[in-house]
């Protein structure tokens, strides 16, 4: 049980400005622990979200020292200095303090037509998809998305374009299109192929891949769709 408690300065973006709090954190405490300490002992009105606490639900995403990430998975002791800036995710309207509206994120998710359209509903459960098949491998690496919105906030394109689907929605669409049980659907491809809102807006800067808390190679997902669409002559 090595290590001692340390005092940290946590500067939280609240409304127009940053409010600074001093909290004592024991070793291995997380940014989420720090926010709870502020809320429970200093200012009960501090607003932030959290549900599962273990990186499975994707509710507690915030910006920590400028980088989007999950509060429950980030430890202040690993940030390199005894002060941290915590702000709401970028590219989403702020409701209060660290709580943002996820509406734009979910609207894009929905636009990507995430609903499965099977070729034969009865046969889906018996379709042979060996784990080492092309789709088996693809799904294993890409289906852990927890819809936390970190990629959406990390994406440089979203800074300039409100129409862009964003990495998570594109990744979901890829999982559908690549699924051998799926009947496909021209509407989904048309959305992905849109000039302003589709995959072509991605500048391949890898920010989403770098920040994804589940380690999904989102840039690869987008690139695969670009290649697929290009092969079809952009529909």
């Amino acid at each position: 049980m090595a290590g001692e408690s340390q005092t940290y300065e946590i500067r939280v973006q609240r409304g127009g400005g940053a409010v600074s709090y001093s909290v004592v954190l024991a070793p291995r405490m997380t940014v989420l622990d720090a926010l709870f300490i502020v809320q429970r002992t200093i200012d009960s009105t501090l607003a932030f979200r959290c549900a599962c606490r273990v990186g499975m639900c994707g509710t507690c995403a915030v910006r920590i020292n400028g980088r989007p990430g999950l509060a429950c998975r980030t430890r202040p002791s690993e940030l390199g200095r005894p002060a941290m800036d915590v702000a709401p995710l970028a590219h989403l309207p702020v409701i209060r303090d660290l709580v943002v509206s996820m509406e734009p994120f979910f609207a894009q998710w929905k636009r990507a037509r995430p609903r499965f359209r099977p070729k034969q509903p009865e046969a889906a459960a018996t379709a042979a998809i060996p784990p080492d098949s092309e789709f088996g491998l693809l799904a294993a690496g890409k289906r852990d998305c927890i819809t936390c919105g970190v990629c959406f906030a990390a994406c440089g394109v979203r800074t300039t374009s409100g129409e862009y689907l964003g990495p998570a929605a594109v990744n979901r669409a890829l999982l559908r299109i690549a699924d051998p049980r799926e009947s496909g659907g021209p509407e989904r491809l048309a959305v992905l192929n849109e000039e302003r809102g589709g995959v072509w807006r991605c500048h391949t800067t890898f920010d989403c891949t770098e920040m994804c808390p589940k380690g999904i190679d989102l840039t690869d997902s987008i690139a695969r769709l670009k290649r697929g669409l290009a092969a079809r002559g952009r529909l």
Partner: peptide
Amino acid sequence: RARELEAWGALFDRTSDGRI
């Protein structure tokens, strides 16, 4: 209910002959 979930797009781990 398990099979229906697959008809809606879930993908359970598979046996070598492709069953759930």
